[in-house]
Design a binder for these strands. Structure first.
Length: 117
DNA sequence: CTAATGACAAACT
DNA sequence: CAGTTTGCCATTA
């Protein structure tokens, strides 16, 4: 239940959630990419904050969102640290030492794929 | 109202 | 080239 989420805050979060849900399977994106798509390229940290709130939304594939290094920085926030890596591997993404391999190949940039015509 | 924290990113040394 | 430091925006104490 959302207690102290004003409409304004929800708006910012809603955008992050929407983009996160638009991430194709087998692909990943970075917090900065989403922030950039939202027009807040310097608010990458807020995207991570929104992801933290996404735990109440089962439709949010937060495991597909990693930092720009391709490192599973948020794996520790999952129900189980292995849940994130396991979910990614289940989609065909290879991970080694909590880092995504071929990150550049599977990187999904919303600003590039969801760019307006 | 000020200070500190955070699932990051870019800049500097 | 790699490691360290500062900046950003929002939330919490």
């Amino acid at each position: 239940m959302i207690e102290n989420l004003n409409a304004k805050n929800k708006d910012f979060f809603a955008q992050v959630f929407e983009v996160a849900k638009l991430i194709p399977p087998g692909r990943v994106t970075s917090y900065g990419a989403i922030a950039n798509y939202l027009g807040a390229s310097r608010a990458a940290r807020m995207v991570g904050w929104a992801m933290n709130a996404s735990h109440q939304f089962p439709e949010i594939p937060a495991h597909r969102v990693v930092n720009r290094n391709g490192l599973l920085s948020g794996k520790m926030h999952f129900p189980t640290p292995d849940s994130m890596q396991q979910s990614l591997e289940s989609e065909g993404i290879r991970i080694q030492d909590d880092q995504i391999l071929h990150f550049s190949e599977i990187f999904w940039d919303p600003s590039e794929e969801l760019k307006l015509p």
